[in-house]
Amino acid sequence: MSIPILKLYNYLLISIQTEIDDKTAIQFQEDLLDKIHKTGATGVVIDLTSVDIIDSFIAKVLGDVITMSDLMGAKVVLTGIQPAVAMTLIDLGIHLQNVATALDLEQGLIKLYQELRV
């Protein structure tokens, strides 16, 4: 099972719709970096609206892929994190300190546009 990555101009859009197991998460990490390399995308939005659980492993993979994308010159914004998921992350002590977030896909794109322009 792989997570589809869509290209829109300079941006990559990902909406995670399935229950993520460890393999899918790792696979996604590879796919995304590959796609950034191929397309030269400068911004990535990962939408987590339909994700109802993020445990420490998935949080780690997400945090890693954001740092890696950054190294490759693509800025990542996480959008649509559910309140329940945010609260469990806080309980777990995971703050994703340097990660950009936005309420939804639209605001995520606006944020990317603003940050990449300056």
């Binding site: 460890d22 109802d52 445990d55 492993f57 309140p83 329940a84 469990t88 777990l92």
Partner: peptide
């Protein structure tokens, strides 16, 4: 509650992992 459901599910995931 939804939040506690997420808490339990996450805890299970951590323990199982």
């Amino acid at each position: 509650s939804t939040v506690d459901q997420a808490r339990i599910t996450t805890a299970v995931s951590e323990l199982a992992r």
